[in-house]
Design a protein around this nucleic acid. Structure first.
Lengths: 347, 347
DNA sequence: AATAGTTTTGCAAATGTTTTCATAAATCGC
DNA sequence: GCGATTTATGAAAACATTTGCAAAACTATT
């Protein structure tokens, strides 16, 4: 093994071993073309022998990039965020960046503390999830001159550039699809909207579109259910067991929709003959469930990758981030879990 | 807003604003009890006014901890890793640590490069996934004096302490369960085992347990299917459509099992009457699918949390990590997707 | 009011790099 | 071979902190 028995081997250790100065070793890493081949070789073996590993902390205090990007998400427990983070990470890793990841669990207060921590680490860029954040968060960001993008949601005028889908549009697509199938007796199920602007936007627009079409969702059919298959299954089973059931159920995301599907089946209903069920997200598995779920595809991979590319570009080329927002369009995916209300009645 | 128009405000900026020396400001953060309340107050307002944010990079070169832990996983795209990372992150965040996350996509070569990058960042600890790693990775780790744990898998004698489940045991549990139900015509489906010691261990032990009971799995019934619901659905549908089908199917994980379930249903079979299907993992949703999946629970949350606690303890108290390995036991969860082969035939 | 003891603060050195500037070495044209 | 360029290297300052040591400012005691 290397002969550096232990202890911190630094750039001067290497310099001594190679019988050159520390500056030369530094150049070996940063501007190798300035060295003549012979010295390069000497240093090369010295590095190898000593087992030297560069110290980015020491570089960073010279204003050199830290090579890290802070990624702040609600949670990894939802597959969709895991997917977007993975895509983001892959995109930035290509350019040599590593991500510093933290989750706030939908507690927007914690976001501020985490953001501060990221800044202490002198991250080169910041990604936040969603458009809504504490005013203190934005102010902190304003003071720093550090690139930041809001990932996952899109809206036209936002405080920082955003890359994501328009949740209003997603909600509208799915609501209009249900209406176009002739459904009038419609139930809704959304996750709690506190600290979750995505869910909030979806719910609001769905209810509005329905209202515009003259459909009112009765109190009892407007459900709030925590993000979990089992909770949703339970609630829908209950809903379908008691009295007349709706002919369609709009769920705020595919997880809820999956649970709803199981719940309806457990209550003895046939999907889509007795009840149409839709989600939003097109999560992994939504295409394969029986019956395959009609939903709105939110392109998580694309969002993560574009967010990563955009941010890295801003970091490296110091381009300002004005007008870097980009909308990744959601698309309706019709599968087997929905059916025309007439078709259903005809049976 | 703060009056520091812009530019890098550092500790001396704060010092000037508070009319004290830089050392005193440093002490304000690191040993506030040494300051008298009046000075503390002065500095407090100065920090606020200038919008100062500490520079961890500058601290780190004094041998002070960086407050980061490097987490190296195969991918976030599998819910189970996302869950374990989330639990780990939560556990270490409690103690003020932030994670540096990177994935190698099952390419063990990339692991070395990522590990080096982590070390350049002077992480305080390292987490690797699984037991199997390139020799170069271990050697690099050996040279450093940095705590490291292998997360997810457990084995008795490993090169670094490990915290996880015993995949052999998990495989044995599920195989013995199927045998105990009287099944003899058994098919298997596992993901590609290259670069994935977990899948490898499971497959090996399942086949061995079956062989010990005198059950041979025909070539055509020993499937290798990529980790995806749709691939698994397709393969199982094919399997069940052509000729006589097995009475039981053992899948390497719950994702494959979920797809298998859909595939069997799509082929017109009833689960568990016609075919019993089992997975390994007890992923989210496995309990709620119809029929609920019999599986082996791998306690991801527990593993992530224990790994985090153990590593942080080693970092803070400088305890050496010898004998820190811990086995989180997998448990068989019997649900509705399995049935005695006699019960099935009786129908 | 002087002394001893204690608490609080500042100075300067140290940390591991990069970078500017200056100098030494190599190369070139003749 | 000689000066003029060009190229390669080293010395020292700079970066944003922490910390050992010593000086200064208080308190308490007489």
């Amino acid at each position: 093994m290397t002969e550096s028995n232990k202890k911190n081997v630094d750039i001067t250790t290497v310099a001594k071993a190679a019988r050159v100065s520390a500056s030369t070793v530094s150049r070996y890493f940063n501007h190798p073309e300035l060295l003549k081949p012979a010295t390069r070789k000497k240093i090369d073996t010295a590095v190898r022998r000593t087992g030297y590993i560069r110290n980015r902390a020491a570089q960073t205090i010279h204003g050199i990039r830290s090579g890290t990007i802070g990624v702040l998400i609600p949670t990894l427990d939802h597959a969709i965020f895991a997917e977007v983070v993975q895509a983001f990470s892959d995109a930035v890793a290509e350019q040599g960046f590593t991500i510093l990841l933290a989750s706030h669990g939908y507690d927007l207060q914690r976001e501020y503390a985490i953001l501060r921590k990221f800044l202490e680490h002198r991250v080169d860029g910041i990604v936040l999830t969603g458009l809504d954040h504490d005013e203190a968060v934005f102010q902190l960001l304003d003071q720093q001159e550090i690139p930041c993008v809001l990932m996952w949601n899109y809206a036209a005028r936002t405080r920082y550039p955003c890359i994501g889908t328009d949740n209003e549009l997603a909600g509208r697509l799915i609501a209009e699809h249900i209406l176009s199938l002739g459904h009038r007796r419609i139930a809704c199920m959304f996750p709690p909207t506190k600290g979750n602007d995505r869910a909030h936007a979806r719910r609001a627009v769905v209810l509005r579109v329905l209202a515009e079409a003259g459909v009112v969702v009765p109190e009892a059919w407007s459900m709030t259910t925590v993000y979990s298959i089992s909770a949703s299954k339970r609630d829908v089973q209950l809903l379908c067991a008691n009295g007349p059931h709706p002919t369609a159920l709009i769920c705020g995301n595919d997880i809820l929709a999956t649970g709803a599907l199981y719940g309806a089946q457990a209550a003895g209903l046939n999907v889509p003959d007795d009840i149409s069920i839709v989600g939003i997200g097109d999560f992994k598995g939504s295409a394969d469930i029986e019956p395959a779920l009609t939903t709105v595809r939110l392109p998580a991979k694309q969002i993560g990758q574009e967010a990563g590319d955009t941010l890295v570009d801003a970091i490296i080329n110091r381009t300002d981030m004005q007008n870097k927002s980009h909308h990744c369009t959601p698309t309706l995916i019709e599968r087997q879990s929905t059916q025309s209300v007439h078709g259903a009645q005809r049976r």
